[in-house]
Design a protein around this nucleic acid. Structure first.
Length: 646
RNA sequence: GCCUCAGUAGCUCAGCCUGGUAGAGCAUCUGAUUUGUAAUCAGACGGCCGGGGGUUCGAAUCCCUCCUGGGGCUCCA
């Protein structure tokens, strides 16, 4: 009998030829190892894979990245098994693993919640039966015969396999799916799953093609991971900016005003203008100038900018006026370009940094609107930098630095850089100048490399006029969102005839434009800030910085004096001198999340002090009024991240 | 826009399955109370049960439709 030498965990083992990966894993790691598959000489293999030669085996654990994807992929198959049994006409299409779970798209009639429950029940039955998941290699013709009733699978074969090659299927019970694998050995590995939702998707993501039913689920290798994820979802719900926004009276969305059109209420306006003030100061120090441009502009403007050919879907339909067609702006850049060309520019003017705090309007599909996260009116901390190619690197660097300064002040840490590239396949989405795309992309890549910062590259995420560097954040639910963007525009110079007089006295047309918005839009930024802080804003951002509370009506006069003194120092303060009990007042005002409550009673009145209660419950009594005012004033002007005057 | 779930008092929700004509707590207002760190007591006010249509003797409840909100429509054997 022949022998193979297999290295597992840096140890050599001898086995007879043909032994399966599963047997080796059981032999080395025991039965309860939470191992779901293995890397055999670097390739992912099922437990059933037979070892014919000497090799290296690395186990894949169910809670590792690869392992959880294998489990989720298998769970998607299990879902398809249940669905095809319960709905015999349903045609499975694709079912990949995703972060936290999986989905599977079926060509079938839509199902509701009851259907989802039924499917989940059926999946659990199959888990209890513990079907083996068996891989089979099938030659092409046979494969096509097996799936002849499912045109989607046939199309997948056409695209991925062709006519020649054979491929693999996976079988569990009576269910068979076309799949390259690998998968877990049997259905009992899939115990910790939960179906979460259904939605509609299009075949190949194309609206013109068949509408499919997408079923989402989550799946983990252990009960603990599943529970933890469910807890995370619960926690995120508590931090929902829509709930916090309502409690703190920050903004509202009114049916009659319109969907996706948030209205900033007095408290929200305070927060928003504090952010603006901060940005204004920061940009001043970085050499920006400020302008205001109109909300409307003529059709010719947006044709020149390329918005109408490339971005018409995102804009509102034109308005017919007596002197032509006008559009509501979706971006500020074309107007800023016209400011640039309004006079002859010298090389001494560059870089010219034009900033604007204004609103732009984008026509998002009604179904995508969500609280402040996706809106139709966006308040932007927008700016455009006009510079030469030589200046691009330092301007981009300065912007990354500026963004870091902002996030530092707000206490955000969970972000990374993304280099967003064009997709040469999608000609209508991007300006068709391949040479410019390639050179500017390389240019940005070089800048990032020189900065020595980690980044990922993603294709198809560029703006229509150029590549960009995005700063990506993770939400409480673990989803990624763009916060900041720094875009390099190589198209504007031609479209708007941008030029300057250079050192040699010749007209130079090589003007690059950097579009940048480090604080996203106010709407998205506020949503993120509220989620991140659970509404517990630092003092300088708190709409109510101090909530004063009297103990009895005897203290009204002194309390009013405290209030006036705080107001004089520029502190936002409210006083509750109603005849409710103090416990009641504290409970009531907590909802508004003031940074501090100050309690005013006999002792305080006598000694001209206050008792301070921070939002987190920490407390300090008998603080002299003057000290308190000085301390909170400092905390506000320093834009302190934490409440630390106690 | 499409799929799905939901909409009852300012807020949070019960009632709906099985049709008989609307409820609670909080908030608000009025009294009483004058309080020392997460709900003092009592009373009052408050609803076209999202809009419209249908079925029925009778609809918050069943059916249709529209509106609004949540989730999804990026992850490709």
């Amino acid at each position: 009998m022949s022998i193979v030498m297999v290295q597992v965990n840096h140890e050599q083992h001898e086995y007879s030829v043909g032994i399966s990966v599963g047997e080796i894993v059981k032999n080395v790691f025991g039965k309860k190892s939470n191992i779901v598959a293995a890397l055999v000489d670097g390739k992912e293999r099922d437990f059933s894979y037979g070892i014919e030669n000497d090799c290296n085996i690395d186990p894949i654990h169910g809670n590792s990245n690869n392992g959880s994807y294998i489990i989720r992929h298998s769970c998607a198959h299990l879902l398809a098994q249940a669905v095809t049994e319960l709905y015999p006409d349903a045609k499975p299409t694709i079912g990949p693993p995703i972060e936290h779970g999986f989905y599977y798209d079926f060509f079938m009639e839509p199902i509701g919640d009851d259907g989802l429950k039924m499917i989940e029940k059926r999946m659990n039955e199959h888990i209890r039966k513990n079907h083996s998941i068996i891989r089979e290699e099938i030659e092409n013709e046979e494969l096509r015969r097996m799936f002849s009733h499912n045109k989607f699978k046939i199309q997948i074969m056409d695209e991925k396999i062709g006519d020649e090659m054979e491929s693999s299927i996976y079988r569990q019970g009576d269910f068979v799916d076309l799949c390259i694998g690998p998968h877990v050995p049997s259905t009992s590995y899939l115990r910790w799953f939960k179906l979460t939702s259904t939605s509609q998707a299009y075949w190949k993501g194309d609206r013109e093609k068949e509408s499919l039913v997408r079923i989402y689920g989550m799946c983990y290798s252990t009960k603990e991971e599943l529970k933890q994820r469910q807890k995370q979802i619960q926690e995120a719900a508590k931090r929902d900016h829509k709930k916090i926004g309502r409690e703190m009276e920050l903004y509202m969305i009114d049916e009659m005003i319109g969907r996706g059109l948030p209205v900033w209420l007095p408290n929200g306006e305070i927060m928003k203008s504090e952010i603006e003030k901060f940005a204004l100061e920061t940009e001043d120090s970085y050499g920006y100038v400020r302008v205001t441009t109109p909300v409307l502009g003529k059709k010719e403007l947006f044709e020149a900018s390329g918005h109408l050919p490339h971005y018409a879907d995102g804009m509102y339909p034109p308005m017919e006026m007596d002197d032509g067609e006008y559009y509501i702006k979706a971006m500020n850049c074309p107007m800023h370009h016209r400011i640039y060309t309004s006079k002859k520019r010298s090389y001494r003017d560059l870089p010219l940094r034009i900033a604007e705090y204004g609103t732009v309007y984008r026509n998002e599909l009604s179904g995508t609107l969500a609280g402040l996260l996706r809106v139709r009116m966006l308040s932007m901390n927008d700016a455009h930098i006009y510079c030469t190619l030589n200046q691009v690197a330092s301007e981009v660097e300065a912007n990354i630095l500026m963004a870091k300064e902002y996030y530092d002040t707000f206490g955000f840490e969970n972000y990374h850089l993304r280099l967003s590239l064009w997709d040469e396949e999608k000609k209508d989405k991007y300006i068709d100048q391949p040479e410019n795309w390639k050179s500017t992309q390389n240019y940005l890549r070089e800048i990032l490399d020189n900065l020595d910062m980690e980044y990922e590259e993603v294709k198809g995420e560029a703006a229509f006029y150029g590549p960009k560097i995005d700063i990506q954040f993770k939400t409480a639910l673990g989803r990624e969102e763009s916060m900041a963007t720094i875009q390099l525009d190589f198209a504007a110079k031609e479209r708007f005839d941008l030029s300057f007089m250079d050192e040699t006295g010749t007209e130079n047309g090589e003007v690059f434009v950097i579009h940048r918005a480090p604080l996203s839009t106010h709407e998205r930024f506020a949503a993120f800030l509220l989620e991140n802080t659970a509404g517990n804003l630092p003092t300088w951002l708190s709409p109510i910085q101090v909530q004063a509370i009297t103990i009895s009506e005897k203290h009204k006069q002194y309390a009013n004096e405290v209030k006036t003194l705080l107001e004089t120092a520029g502190v936002r303060v409210k006083l509750d001198d109603s005849d409710n009990t103090i416990g009641k007042k504290i409970r009531t005002h907590r909802k508004m999340r003031p940074a501090y409550m100050v309690i005013i009673g006999d002792d305080e009145q006598k000694a001209r002090t206050v008792s301070i209660r921070a939002r987190d419950g920490r407390q300090k009594n008998d603080v002299s009024l003057n000290d308190f005012i000085a301390d909170i004033f400092a905390e506000i002007t320093n834009r302190s991240k934490t409440l630390d005057i106690i």
